[in-house]
Simulated scan of single mutants.
Amino acid sequence: MAYCPKCGIKVERDNRPCPLCNFHIPKVHEESDEVLRVKKFPKTTNPYPTYTRRVLNRIFIFITLLVFVAVSLMFYIDYELNNTFTWSRYSNLSVLAGWVLIYFSFGYVKNYYKIIIGIGIDALILLFGLDRFDGSLDWFIPLAFPIVTGTTVIGICYWSVIRALSVRGFNVIGFLFIAIVILTMWINFFIQSYQNKTNPLNWIIVTALQLLPVLLIMLYVKYGMPERIKQKIARKFHL
C-alpha cells in the first residue's frame, strides 16, 4: 500500500490522484524482494587467493624458463667439450626431477594421492636414469625400486588411515611415527639384502636401535611434554 503525501490516507499503489484531496501521487518503483535481498546482502569475494595464485604462476613460469635455459646450456657445453653427452645427462635429469617436485609444491595438483604417487614416480625415473646411464642396472632393481615403491605405498596408506579415522591433533604425529617405524624396517631389510647380510637377528637389532629414538620421542610427547607446549605446537601446526 502507498500513502498520500498530503493527507496521509492509504491509497492503491497506482492510484492517482488521491481520491480524498485530489493530490497528485508520484509513482514509486518498488523492487522485488529478490532484488532487495541481493542488494541487502551482497556477495563478498576474497581477492587474496586469486592474487596469490597469480604470483605463484609467475614465479613458476620464471623457474621453468631458468630450468629450460640451464638444461640447454649444460647439454651444449657437454657436447662442445666431449662431442657427446656425458655428465650433462646426470645433471639435467636431476634438474628435471627437481622441477617436477617444484610443480607439485606449487599446488597445481590438489589430490594428495596423486601428489604422493607423482613424487614416487618422479623418484623412480630419476634413480632409474642415474643407474641406467652407467650402462647397467646394478642397484635400481634390488635396492632403489623396492624402497621407493614401499615409501609410496606407506605414504598412501598413512593418508588413507588419517582420512578414514578422522585423526586429529597429536594423534597425527603418532600415526606418522608408526609409518616411520614401518618404513625404517622396510628400508633396512632391503639394504641388508643388497649387501648380502640378511641375518634376521642382526636385522632386528639394527632396526630396534634405529627405532629407539622414535620411541623415546613418542613417549615424551605423550607423557612428558608440558601441556602449554602441546597447545603451542597444536596452534602453530593447526593440529
Rank of each mutant, 00 (worst) to 15 (best):
Y3E: 08
I9E: 15
V11K: 01
E12C: 01
N15L: 07
P17H: 00
F23R: 00
F23Y: 11
V28E: 15
E30W: 06
S32T: 13
E34S: 14
E34I: 08
V38K: 11
V38W: 06
F41R: 13
F41S: 09
P47D: 12
Y48P: 00
T50L: 11
Y51E: 15
T52I: 12
N57I: 05
R58H: 12
T64Y: 05
L65E: 10
V69R: 09
V69G: 04
V71G: 04
L73M: 11
F75H: 05
F85T: 10
W87K: 05
S88W: 02
R89S: 11
L96D: 01
G98K: 03
W99V: 02
F104I: 04
S105W: 06
N111W: 01
Y112P: 04
Y112C: 03
I116V: 15
I119W: 04
D122N: 15
A123L: 14
L126N: 06
G129T: 00
L130I: 10
D131N: 00
R132C: 08
F140A: 01
G150C: 01
T151R: 04
G155C: 02
I156P: 03
Y158K: 10
W159Y: 13
S160C: 05
N171H: 10
F175K: 05
A179K: 09
L183W: 12
N188V: 03
F190R: 02
I191C: 09
S193N: 10
S193L: 12
S193A: 13
T198D: 12
P200A: 00
V206W: 05
L209P: 03
P213H: 01
V214W: 02
I217S: 13
G224W: 12
P226D: 00
E227M: 01
I233V: 10
F237G: 00
H238T: 05
L239K: 05
